[in-house]
């Protein structure tokens, strides 16, 4: 059933280029309760789940359409970055889950992103997303949206591939 919802979302994006651009350039708005991008009463964990599903769907849609849409091809590196950061987000915290989630919510929430009991699928796609984003960073000079990035920005992105958030944090284990 979740797969059907993701297909409907991809079809919806196909007819709304402005929304597609917004999800590629401003996905953080989905986490911001003040933005109205999602219903205001939604808790942080549900916002993350929907962001993760949207980032994954946008990536898949752009990858499918990139061969025939040069504009989509240009957006792919940004979509790859968002997908990796969104899917890996709950695994970046030393305490075990994001600070604004409820206690012991990590397992419950990460099992739901791609439908019930889909925790293994989340981990699989997070690793796939890490490899895809790493490949773009490895060839950043070939991609217009990355080629002019400052060296320290690229260093931060490389660090985020391998490490959790914060100083002296451990490896990002997916």
């Amino acid at each position: 059933e979740f797969d059907q919802a993701a297909t409907r979302l991809a079809d919806y994006l196909h007819t709304r280029p402005g929304l597609l651009r917004a999800l590629v350039h401003s996905p953080h708005l989905l986490l911001d309760p003040q933005s109205d991008a999602l219903p205001g009463h939604w808790p942080p964990a549900r916002r993350w789940r929907v962001l993760a599903a949207c980032a994954d769907t946008v990536w898949a849609y752009l990858e499918r359409t990139a061969p025939t849409h040069s504009h989509h091809r240009r957006l792919l590196p940004l979509a790859a970055r968002s997908r990796f950061l969104a899917l890996s987000y709950p695994f970046r915290f030393r305490a075990g889950s994001p600070p604004d989630w409820g206690k012991d919510e990590l397992t419950r929430q990460t099992e739901l992103v791609f439908g019930r009991n889909s925790g293994a699928e989340l981990v699989r796609r997070a690793n796939e997303a890490r490899q895809a984003w790493a490949a773009y960073l490895d060839t950043y000079q070939s991609h217009p949206v990355l080629a002019e990035a400052a060296s320290h920005d690229l260093e931060e992105e490389v660090a985020a591939l391998a490490f959790r958030a914060g100083p002296r944090s451990g490896p990002l284990v997916l």
């Binding site: 059933e1 402005g18 929304l19 917004a22 401003s26 933005s35």
Partner: peptide, 26 residues
């Protein structure tokens, strides 16, 4: 632009779409 992004993400049918996604996740 940021304003255009905000406008695109606040359309009523977008809210209906994401509500459906969240429901199917649970």
């Amino acid at each position: 632009s940021p304003d255009a992004d905000r406008a695109a993400l606040t359309a009523p049918d977008w809210h209906a779409m994401v509500a459906c996604v969240a429901e199917e996740q649970e």
